[in-house]
Computed example of a mutant assay.
Amino acid sequence: MGTIEIDKDLIPYRFDLELSNKIYTFVIKYNFISDFFTIDLLIDDKILVQSEKIVLNEQLFKDLYEDSEGNLNEDFFTEALIFKSSNKNINEITFVNLQDEVKLFYYTREEIESGGMHE
C-alpha cells in the first residue's frame, strides 16, 4: 500500500505513473459547479477511460479492467487505486478535503487478494 500525491491546485492535473511495469497517464478534472472530480486514464496517448467520476472508497476503473469472472484486461494495471479518508465523518470527495483528508491509495494484487486493503 502507498499513496499517490495529487496537487489539487494544478487541476486540471496530468501526471504519469508506473503501474504493472507500464507508464499510465492520469488526468484529473474538477467540476466546480457540482463539486466533483473526474479522471481520465491513458496509455501511450490511447484513452482507456474518459471522465470517470471519482467516488470515495470505490476502486477506480474496476468495472472496466476486471470482468465478473476475475479476468483482467491486459491494457490495465493490476493494482487497485482507491480514494480514501481516515476521517469517518467524510462521505464524499470535495475540493476542500482532497489531499488534505482524502488521499489516493494504491494496493498491490497480493494486498487485494489477502484482504489487506485497509488504511
Rank of each mutant, 00 (worst) to 15 (best):
M1R: 15
G2C: 05
E5W: 10
E5R: 13
E5F: 13
I6P: 12
D7V: 09
K8Q: 14
D9L: 14
D9S: 14
D9T: 15
L10T: 08
I11T: 12
P12I: 08
Y13L: 12
Y13F: 14
R14H: 15
R14V: 15
F15M: 10
D16F: 14
D16E: 15
L17E: 14
E18T: 13
E18N: 14
E18I: 11
E18A: 14
S20R: 06
S20F: 04
N21H: 15
K22L: 14
K22I: 14
K22P: 09
K22F: 12
T25I: 11
V27E: 13
Y30T: 03
Y30F: 06
I33G: 07
D35S: 04
D35V: 04
F36Y: 08
F36I: 01
F37I: 00
F37N: 01
I39T: 01
I39E: 00
D40R: 00
D40Y: 01
L41W: 03
D44P: 09
D45C: 12
I47T: 05
L48D: 07
L48H: 05
V49R: 05
Q50R: 13
Q50C: 14
S51K: 08
K53G: 02
K53I: 06
I54L: 09
I54G: 04
V55T: 08
V55N: 09
L56E: 02
N57H: 07
N57D: 13
N57V: 07
N57G: 08
Q59F: 11
L60I: 05
L60V: 07
L60S: 05
F61E: 06
F61Q: 07
K62E: 09
D63M: 09
D63P: 05
D63K: 12
Y65K: 12
Y65P: 07
E66L: 05
D67I: 04
D67Y: 02
E69M: 13
G70V: 03
G70P: 02
G70E: 02
N71Y: 09
L72S: 12
L72A: 10
E74Q: 12
E74V: 12
E74S: 09
F76K: 04
F76L: 06
F76I: 08
F77V: 07
F77E: 03
E79V: 04
A80L: 03
L81A: 01
L81Q: 00
F83L: 01
K84L: 08
K88I: 11
N89K: 05
N91F: 10
N91G: 10
E92F: 04
E92H: 04
I93E: 04
F95E: 00
F95I: 00
F95K: 00
N97I: 05
N97K: 01
N97A: 03
L98V: 02
Q99L: 03
D100F: 04
D100C: 01
D100P: 04
E101W: 03
V102A: 00
L104S: 02
F105D: 06
F105N: 07
Y106F: 03
Y106K: 03
Y107P: 01
Y107L: 02
Y107H: 02
R109D: 06
E110N: 12
E110G: 09
E111A: 01
I112N: 04
E113M: 09
S114Y: 02
S114V: 02
G116W: 09
H118G: 11
E119R: 15
E119P: 13
E119I: 15
E119Q: 15
